[in-house]
Simulated scan of single mutants.
Amino acid sequence: MSTKANRYAHQLLDARAQAKLMPLLSDADALSLMDGYEIGKRILDASIGQGSNPVGRKLGFCNRNIWQKYGIAQSISAPIWAHIFDTTVRYAEDNRGIQSLEGAVQPRIEPEVVFSLGRTPAPDADLEELADCIEWMAHAFEIVVCPFPDWKFEAVDAIAAFGLHGTLIIGEPHVLSSATRRNLASMLANASVSLSCCTEDSVTLCGAGFGSDVLDSPVHALWHLHQELNAHPEFTPLQAGEIITTGTWTDAYPVQAGQTWVTAFSGITLPGLTVSFV
């Protein structure tokens, strides 16, 4: 797989640099999920060589409600993950921002919750111990992109293609107390978010979702990632200082320049985000 992984990684990097579509990797080869992660590792190495620094991970397909909408031969039925970089993460001051879509191929928007780890979790950490390692959380928009026509792909294609990660726009971080960390999984599970699109002519409620849709809670999604990384020694385990975005609370919706997207939470004291696209 080594030579193929390098070739596919460079094809994906070129497609991103040129903002162009490309054929499915899975159409050309019989690839396993681990092959997808090997391609992702080559992309990680190349990205570091080009000056990007990994700052954390993104989780994808943690929302069970959207699994049946993605996949060709079979529906995607499990989360995936990929690295995120200092070149793909930005912060929205006062929970408002402007984001260029230049170079973004088939961009879509996802409302998510982000965690930052203050401590490195023990390999055998349970859910509560893992939650206690979280220093802060924030609301974020992940702008996901897809180099494959019409957003049609298999899971291995999505894994290899940067986990479909484009840009992560993070709102105001909220440092967590020990009491909040103890109850965080249930607090987020019972919260909900609405996602609206605003143009000059209209305001449209596009989607809504619950924290429980994200593998029962975004904290459970983080725990899933922790277990997945520890089960595969070829992956680097979670480390203190990493930022983890835990997956969308709604489906991913197409975005275009001239739109402003707005979220609002219920059941938890997280402010919404307002981001305009140009």
Rank of each mutant, 00 (worst) to 15 (best):
V156N: 11
G211L: 04
I134V: 14
V275T: 09
H174N: 14
G171A: 09
R108G: 07
F235K: 12
V144R: 03
T199D: 12
S202N: 10
E172F: 05
D201A: 10
K41S: 12
V144I: 14
A125K: 06
T167Q: 14
E38A: 15
S202I: 01
W136A: 09
C198G: 00
A17V: 00
S196G: 01
P79E: 07
F141S: 07
E228R: 15
L164R: 12
A252C: 13
T204Q: 15
P123I: 06
P121M: 04
L222N: 03
A221N: 08
I143L: 13
A138T: 07
Y91C: 01
I243F: 12
S202V: 02
M187P: 00
W81F: 15
I80L: 14
I134C: 04
E234S: 15
I244R: 07
R64V: 05
N190R: 12
T88F: 02
I43V: 15
L222K: 04
I98A: 03
T274D: 02
Y8L: 09
D124I: 06
E102Q: 13
G272A: 09
N53R: 14
T248L: 07
D150A: 13
I268G: 06
M137F: 06
I98R: 10
N95E: 08
Q68I: 05
H224V: 08
S177F: 11
S217F: 08
Y253S: 09
A140R: 02
S75Y: 04
P111F: 03
Q256F: 07
F153E: 09
I43K: 01
V156T: 15
G267C: 11
S212A: 12
P254C: 09
L44Q: 10
A264W: 03
M34Y: 08
L176K: 08
D216Y: 09
